[in-house]
Each structure stands twice: as C-alpha cells, then as structure tokens.
Simulated scan of single mutants.
Amino acid sequence: MVTTDQPIRIGVMGTHSTGKTMLLKRTEMELRAHGIPVTRTGRIGRRAATIGLPKMQNHTAASTEWVITQGIADELAAAAQLDPAPVQVVLADRAALDALAYFHAAQEWRSEHPNRLERERLCLLAFTQAPKYDLLLATVLDTAVPVAPKHDYDARYRVLVDQYTHRILAEDADAHQRVTSDPLSQARAVERALETCLKGSAV
C-alpha cells in the first residue's frame, strides 16, 4: 500500500460568522463517510484571547504572528495524529493567510501604517504556508444574513476582513474557491474538497 508523504490540507478563511466552521464540519462528515482519515484544527481565536492577545480590530503584529505560527503547529500536530492510510486529510479552520487578512483589516480600521519590514515579515511567514494547501475555501460575506445578537461585531471591520481576504487570494493564491451563503455554493465547495481528496487517493 502506497501512502502519501504529506496529508492533503484543506484550509478555510473568511471574515467572522460566514460559516467557516460549519463548512469544515460538513466536509469532515463527507470525508469520513468515504472512509478517509481526517482531522480538523480550530479555536485559534479563542485561545489567543485566553492568553490575553488582542483580537478583531485590535489585532497587532504580535497577535498575528502568534495566530499564524500556532496554526502551523496545530496543522503539523494534527497530521502526526492521523492513522496511516493511502490518503489523509487535515482541515484547517483559519488557514495561515486568514490571519494576514485580519491584520491588514485591523490596520486600516485604525488608520495605522505598520512598519514596512514588520509587514513584509508577516506576509512572508503567511505566504510560505500557502503552497501547502491543496485547496483553500474562502467564504464570502453576505450582510443580509443576520448575525447572532451575542456577537458584538464591528460591521465595518467585518467588511474590511472580507475585502482583504479575497484581495489576497485574487493576487497570490492559486487553488481556492469562493463560497457564498447560497446552499448550492456550499455544496459545491464540499464536493470540490471531496474530489481533491479522492484525486489524492488515486495518486
């Protein structure tokens, strides 16, 4: 039996409350139904807040670096825990480029201009991870979809994150798919994720 050297990695990114986690849960269920070993990372934002790092529009270079590097560590740990199989899958809730979009949005929201070298360093750190993803799913903000009252989000910042997410992907990422709030779009995203994994199993 031939096994892949590295697991297939599928990452999701997009502004908050646009269905990222639910999309990965659906993808995970579909993959398991096909007998494909899969694991999922997540809760990075909550963990960052737990240790006192700023979040949302208060993101700093330091908190962004922590999110990126912690995400990298989580994905490596998840891959190590998978059972050997012809194809293995790691689903990353918040791919590395996601943190970059949140950082750029926070800077614009606060009308700040980061140090050029610091900005370039964060971009380099995030973009070194981009080729590791076999597929990136990018949710699209639909302002018509209501947000739960418990989430006290700043509307302008939420829009900025969405704009930077798709700007970054349009300029630099190859294999990505936009996912709207439309059920058909979400179903197609899950189908593409499954196709990507099944294709990997045939290699």
Score class of each variant (00 low, 15 high):
residue 183 P to N: 09
residue 127 F to N: 04
residue 188 R to G: 08
residue 30 E to Q: 12
residue 191 E to G: 07
residue 5 D to H: 14
residue 89 V to T: 14
residue 174 D to E: 14
residue 34 H to K: 14
residue 31 L to H: 09
residue 97 L to V: 06
residue 200 G to C: 10
residue 21 T to R: 00
residue 147 V to C: 05
residue 114 P to C: 10
residue 89 V to W: 03
residue 183 P to W: 10
residue 171 E to N: 11
residue 168 I to E: 02
residue 82 L to T: 04
residue 71 G to K: 03
residue 112 E to Y: 04
residue 144 A to D: 07
residue 17 S to I: 06
residue 94 R to I: 06
residue 94 R to H: 02
residue 120 E to D: 14
residue 171 E to M: 13
residue 140 V to P: 01
residue 141 L to K: 10
residue 8 I to Q: 12
residue 115 N to A: 10
residue 162 D to M: 08
residue 104 H to W: 14
residue 154 D to K: 07
residue 146 P to Q: 11
residue 80 A to F: 09
residue 141 L to E: 02
residue 144 A to R: 14
residue 86 P to M: 07
residue 196 T to N: 05
residue 4 T to M: 06
residue 72 I to S: 03
residue 98 D to W: 02
residue 39 T to F: 04
residue 30 E to N: 06
residue 126 A to P: 02
residue 76 L to R: 15
residue 127 F to M: 11
residue 145 V to Y: 08
residue 61 A to Q: 13
residue 112 E to V: 02
residue 50 T to V: 11
residue 142 D to A: 10
residue 111 S to K: 15
residue 72 I to L: 03
residue 200 G to H: 10
residue 134 D to A: 15
residue 195 E to Y: 06
residue 84 P to W: 01
residue 115 N to F: 01
residue 177 Q to L: 15
residue 70 Q to C: 10
residue 10 I to E: 06
residue 27 T to W: 04
residue 24 L to P: 02
residue 69 T to R: 15
residue 29 M to H: 15
residue 119 R to P: 11
residue 7 P to I: 08
residue 81 Q to I: 02
residue 43 R to D: 13
residue 60 T to G: 00
residue 10 I to K: 12
residue 186 Q to F: 03
residue 163 Q to A: 10
residue 73 A to G: 04
residue 115 N to R: 06
residue 114 P to K: 03
